[in-house]
């Protein structure tokens, strides 16, 4: 397509280029070239600032819409780590400042939890599950080489006539049951495939449920312990 004299463009001056840059009208390669010039051209930077301010009046046409509350929680998680897990615990009525055991206790439980784990295994992940009143504590160790999650209950047990059910929570998604824990202190669970890739940052939680487990696969009891999974 050739330019006719009527349609042809004079090469744009820097001010027009700056306006096109602010509007995002430049083709990708020209945009990058312009941005490279900006790095050491204060006059050009000033042109961009001027155009940004000239056009800012149109911002009034961006109608404010409040985003869902979960968006902020996810954002904080992406930036700072485990913030949305806190939001989840708050939602389930668990005190957000779940206290972690002292390093010595954690070290002991880690050692205890790793009994039976092949030392040549793949990356290992650990989660200490505890609750507000510390009545129930578990250590979970996940071996990524065989997708086995080993749980060791170090304190507490299910309330009378109730069972302990383990849940996996991935971000803002609904908890997914990993099954009812046996009465024995130790148990091994194969982690469902959908959680294997997102194991780091996954939250494990334990609720007390009626015998047989949560009706309909939705947690109905109180959260007795919870904790995020981290790589070791």
């Amino acid at each position: 397509m050739s330019d006719t004299p009527e349609q042809g463009d004079l090469p744009p001056d820097d001010s027009t280029l700056a306006a096109e840059y602010v509007l995002r009208l430049l083709p990708h390669d020209q945009e990058r070239a312009f941005a490279a010039r900006l790095a050491n051209d204060p006059a050009l930077t000033a042109e961009v600032a001027q155009w940004t301010t000239r056009l800012e009046g149109m911002n009034a046409e961006f109608t404010p819409v409040a985003p869902r509350a979960a968006v902020k929680a996810t954002l904080q998680s992406r930036l700072f780590g485990d913030a949305p897990r806190v939001a989840f615990w708050q939602r389930l009525g668990l005190w957000q400042g779940v206290s972690f055991a002292s390093l010595a206790v954690a070290g002991f439980m880690l050692w205890q939890g790793m009994q039976g784990v092949d030392p040549q295994s793949g990356p290992l992940y650990v989660s200490e599950l505890s609750g507000e009143n510390q009545e129930l504590r578990l250590l979970a160790v996940y071996d990524s080489s065989n997708a086995e999650l080993r749980l060791t209950r170090t304190d507490g047990s299910a309330p009378a006539n109730r069972v302990l059910e383990l849940w996996a929570i991935d971000g803002d998604n609904a908890p997914v049951s990993l099954g009812v824990l046996p009465d024995a202190a130790g148990s091994v669970i194969t982690l469902p495939p959908e959680f294997r890739a997102s194991i780091s940052g996954l939250v494990l939680a334990i609720t007390d449920e009626p015998p047989g487990g949560a009706p309909g696969g939705i947690p109905s009891g109180s959260v007795m312990a919870a904790g995020p999974v981290t790589e070791i």
């Binding site: 911002n59 109608t63 819409v65």
Partner: peptide
């Protein structure tokens, strides 16, 4: 500011 930015 999130409502304004989300609207944008």
């Amino acid at each position: 500011t999130s409502a304004k930015l989300f609207g944008t």
